[in-house]
Design a protein around this nucleic acid. Structure first.
Lengths: 130, 130
DNA sequence: GGTAGAATGAAAACCATTATCATATCCACC
DNA sequence: GGTGGATATGATAATGGTTTTCATTCTACC
């Protein structure tokens, strides 16, 4: 019925953890949370493989903050969004709109460049931490 | 007279290599190019340290393409810019204007978030490779 | 049931980057 | 000039997230 049929057991558990997470979550975080709930939960290798599959299916997006540790979060299938990441409290606010999307036409006409993907993350201080 | 007075020998050589580079260049690339010219050139450790210093001084910017290998390029002191990176030929075109800068005020008023830094890189197909 | 292909796990390999620590070099000051 | 303390450098080892490897376990289908 749904795309879930395509998910392995491991991937379903990974998706479930991600679905409950408020914040961006690393593979290792996912793994240790799974193992906290159930010591027979998927191993780290499976977590990585599941994430790769979920990202490939457009159900999860990987976020690279440039600190050597990739984070993940659930997205609406095929969509993506960017973040305002607070240096002080590490919270991340979703931008409700992709700032790059609107510029794609302008980039195409100015540079003849067809965009396929992009990275955009903004760091600073959130309203609570001002 | 100039900021160059603050640069160590190693950093000067690194900066020279970067200055001659058309493309984004990794630390390891810089190192092997240095060693090609002169087998007594700075070691990899010094290259990394020099890059850290140059980035700190605003003379070089680090670019993270999310592939686990940081690249570097010379910038006008204190400035930065973003790229259109072609998936096919790996060329990178500089955007002549920072797309995020213009949005900082809007982000501040909408989210109360003060921006400090950001990552933005755009991937796709360049005009030559269309 | 039996079997091929997929999924999984433990452990090892990878690899860019950092830390360590000993040596070489610089430079201010006498 | 010399000299001593700070700075720079280099070889090597360590780090740590991610990938590979390969053997084992599941699962779907005939």
């Amino acid at each position: 019925m749904t795309h879930n049929d395509r998910l392995t057991k491991g991937a379903k558990k990974v998706l479930e953890i991600l679905g409950r997470s408020e914040e961006l979550t690393s593979a290792q975080d996912i793994h240790s949370r799974l193992r906290t709930d159930d010591e027979r939960a998927p191993g780290l290798t499976t977590v990585y493989r599941s994430l790769e599959s979920l990202v490939g299916q457009g159900l999860v997006q990987a976020v690279d903050l440039g600190d050597g540790e990739r984070r993940y979060e659930v997205v609406k299938p095929g969509e993506h969004h960017h973040h305002l990441i607070c240096d002080k409290c590490n919270s991340s606010v979703h931008l409700d709109q992709c700032l790059v999307h609107d510029l794609e036409d302008a980039i195409k006409s100015k540079y003849g460049f067809s965009t396929r993907a992009h990275i955009l993350e903004i760091f600073g201080t959130c309203s609570d931490c001002q």
